[in-house]
Design a protein around this nucleic acid. Structure first.
Lengths: 191, 191
DNA sequence: CCTACCGATCGGTAGG
DNA sequence: CCTACCGATCGGTAGG
């Protein structure tokens, strides 16, 4: 591990490749060529190909958890919290399409201990959604059949965005956020 | 290509492997070993590894389109149609987890002409959802911001099921269907 | 950061 | 269905 910047640069070069061809479909040669060096030189910055994948995925998941925690600032009611959570979740998957695609598709290729850690983080994230929905049911703001299933459905529909959203598309991100917020509030019987 | 049965048997042996390790992460040896033969013998039934992937994906997509068309029988109002569509979509992704996982994850690994064909089928499928939602808005049964985005969100939340549903889990499939139907109808402002 | 190289495995073919 | 084998490529190492 030399400079951290170089590690990030390599990871960013690997992202479109992992997202497009998958982990096993991408060679160290491909990643190296993307930044104009030889494959063997990558080992000055990462000890293995797996480490590049793990770096990308844990960085993305860590950022998502932090971004979510930050978006809750100033939100008090479950309705406010869920609205912010949905909008931020959706926006994160739109802004960081490649990393979230990789994180969701290649998780089975991660080896321990990274996989266990990532699963733990994901579980933590899901639990936050479940808690917000449950809280909303307690205050009477929400009414729904099952907080867990509802959380799954809401998360899944936000994840889906990373597969079809295009920055140069015809739908504005800000409009998308409004639409997703509205759909979510309806789903939990809120507003 | 010898007997069709053998082709199906090979494809079914490949499914859990492709779903778990991905297309490039699975070798012909792995697939062959799963049914107790040598890798080279697979070429008596498929001309390439790619053909196995294409067979799995086009079969799954064809079945999904047919299953959906069948579920609309006897449904007349947009509300009925959407309810049947959501329930059937979700159930298909629960029943055929492996194939739908593969179809959604490995589509970028498909080569033409299979990829183009699959994309066309998928587009056809999405259009059916959009049309039902649009029809519901015209009759006044539904009210929502954008039929296309709403269709995407509904489809994505159903697809998500193939990633977390387990046949031996604690949630009954019939209950899931009811929950998803209810969430969908709320999302389009129906019921 | 490079060149040179390692053993292993890849998808696929030939021939029976 | 098998054995035997092909060239290509894989992730990774040695040494500078």
């Amino acid at each position: 591990m030399k400079t951290y910047d170089r590690r990030v640069e390599i990871a960013e070069a690997a992202m479109p490749l992992f997202a497009d061809r998958g982990y096993y479909g991408t060679g160290m040669q491909d990643i190296a060529a993307a930044i104009g060096i030889k494959a063997s030189s990558l080992y000055n910055h990462y000890s293995s190909k797996h480490e590049i994948l793990a770096f990308i995925m844990t960085t993305a998941m860590t950022d998502m958890l932090n971004t979510h925690a930050r978006c809750l600032a100033g939100m008090h009611t479950p309705t406010e919290k869920l609205g912010a959570t949905v909008a931020t979740h959706m926006e994160f998957h739109a802004h960081r399409r490649l990393e979230t695609q990789i994180t969701n598709r290649e998780i089975s290729h991660l080896k321990d201990p990274d996989r266990t850690q990532l699963r733990r983080m994901r579980k933590d994230y899901v639990n936050r959604w479940i808690e917000i929905i449950t809280e909303g049911m307690e205050t009477g703001e929400f009414t729904c059949e099952d907080p867990k299933i509802t959380a799954y459905a809401l998360i899944d529909m936000g994840i889906g965005v990373c597969n079809w959203y295009r920055p140069d598309g015809q739908v504005e991100l800000e409009i998308l956020k409004v639409i997703y917020k509205e759909m979510a509030l309806r789903m939990v019987g809120g507003k």
